[in-house]
């Protein structure tokens, strides 16, 4: 296993333990929750008495679209069985399973990147260009932060699950 490695520095041993993997999954859930509640916070702030924007600015469905895209992308990416990705050779990829998996994965990544880019677009077009001051600007900033946190959560979950594959492989050998 270690002789096939490309880089000089060895991977630290704690990266392959089952405990690190468990902690990674918990962390992913926590990050997703943080992003979700920042989004809800922006929506609640829009309805509360603190929102004193003079021409009233509220969270509309446009602000929700990037978050919905990111969450859908995360669902798509993490519902793929990762071991099918490398099964391209001859073993059990009968009808091009790896190809299909990569297509679905691409759709998931596109949804997620579209979510983050859409949050940036909403922040720019709806809040920065009309030059709103800060309490109103928070609704746009929260959107970007929430989508970034959902993306970070997905990355942590992906790394943790790949960790599990190598751990399983070591055990199986």
């Amino acid at each position: 296993m270690s002789s096939h490695r490309l880089f000089r520095f060895p991977k630290p041993a704690w990266l392959n333990s089952a405990n690190t993997r468990t902690a990674g999954v918990y962390t992913a859930g926590a990050l997703f929750s943080l992003g979700f509640y920042i989004l809800i916070d922006a929506a609640a702030f829009s309805k509360s008495a603190l929102n004193g924007s003079d021409p009233p600015v509220h969270i509309t469905f446009v602000d929700w679209i990037p978050g919905i895209c990111s969450a859908l992308g995360m669902l798509v990416i993490n519902s793929i069985d990762k071991s099918r990705l490398s099964a391209d050779s001859f073993s059990y990829s009968g009808n091009g399973v790896a190809w299909k998996a990569r297509l679905v994965l691409f759709l998931g990544f596109a949804l997620m990147a579209g979510g983050l880019a859409g949050a940036g677009a909403v922040l720019g077009l709806k809040y920065v260009v009309p030059e709103y001051p800060f309490p109103t600007l928070w609704m746009g900033v929260a959107n970007v932060v929430a989508n970034g946190l959902v993306m970070l959560s997905s990355v942590v979950l992906w790394v943790a699950q790949n960790m599990e594959d190598e751990y399983t492989y070591n055990l199986a050998l």
Partner: peptide, 17 residues
């Protein structure tokens, strides 16, 4: 585990919100 992490952070995030 993902849902547990979600709910634990929710308990802190909800009052802050």
């Amino acid at each position: 585990r993902f849902m547990t992490g979600f709910l634990v952070v929710m308990g802190v995030a909800l009052p802050a919100l």
